[in-house]
Nucleic acid binder design. Structure first.
Length: 257
DNA sequence: CTCGGGCATGGGT
DNA sequence: AACCCATGCCCGA
């Protein structure tokens, strides 16, 4: 997939809160967004590594995806204790470009420099349903004992990517199937099938309303973002493109559930 | 008829 | 064997 077809999906996954939906070419001249774009293009130029589509990698690093058991004050004020998922993945392979320990590569923008901070041991016992398989081992040894975390002052945190399938780009449907784990990890918890609405805004000021909902299946739930028809048209979503979801804040912090 | 919302199913992991 | 998810398909508007 071409780099310029990457779509950055910046969202603050809280009902009624703002969501930013941009295409990469729209944001190259925006500082903090550039950072993320650069980050992405440097480290995940073509498609998301398989693990990136799963929240485990990130959850490994956060340890506390579901519950605001992190010290609320601290997290809210300092905002971004979570490394981007890619970062979390790369923690396992320090030789890669732009590892957390070389933040300059990723974040040179002066307006929005990143800080390297040491991750507090935010360990929530409650990673329950999210298993630690696979990446669990990687993270443990990959991180330089002291897990270092890029803390962006912008507080934007890449969450996950999804490569669009043909059905994701069906204009008639206008809905995006969300990987179940990602939806459950990063989006507000919804118990009603009708879900919630998220307000979407792109860098040109267009605002959309996305409907985050699920329906039940023989095996649990399937999560969708609906109401994307106009977005798809405008941004010309095509199968094979990658949508990246970036949280402006942490869902489990902002969420009032 | 088409469209679109909702569910069911089956392949793949 | 379990279950995720891409998509088929039904049905109401």
């Amino acid at each position: 997939m071409k780099e310029d077809s990457v779509k950055l999906f910046i969202l603050k996954p809280v009902a009624g809160e703002s969501v930013l939906l941009v295409r990469s070419e729209f944001i190259v001249d925006v500082s903090w967004q550039s950072i993320h774009l650069q980050y992405w293009t440097l480290k995940a130029p073509h498609r998301c590594p398989p693990d990136l589509g799963r929240p485990e990698a990130l959850l490994q690093a956060t340890n506390s995806p579901q519950i605001p058991s992190v010290d609320p004050e601290r997290t809210i004020t300092e905002v971004a204790p979570v490394p981007p998922p890619d970062l979390a993945v790369r923690n396992a392979s320090p030789n890669e470009v732009a590892t957390p320990t070389t933040p300059g590569v990723v974040h040179q923008t002066q307006s929005s420099p990143a800080e390297i901070v040491e991750e507090d041991s935010v360990n929530s016992p409650d990673a329950t349903k999210i298993s630690r398989r696979k990446n669990g081992g990687k993270r443990g040894k990959g991180a330089n004992k002291q897990t270092q975390v890029c803390r962006l002052k912008s507080s934007l945190v890449p969450l996950f990517e999804k490569e669009l399938t043909p059905s994701d780009t069906d204009i008639k449907k206008g809905r995006l199937l969300l990987p179940k784990r990602c939806a459950e990890a990063y989006f507000p918890k919804i118990s009603e099938q009708q879900g919630i609405f998220l307000t979407v805004e792109d860098t040109k000021g267009n605002a959309w309303k996305l409907h985050f909902r699920f329906w039940t299946n023989t095996n649990g739930r399937m999560y969708f973002l609906e109401g994307l028809r106009d977005c798809m048209t405008l941004m010309q979503w095509a199968a094979g493109d990658t949508v990246t979801l970036v949280s402006e804040q942490f869902p489990w912090i902002a969420e009032d559930a």
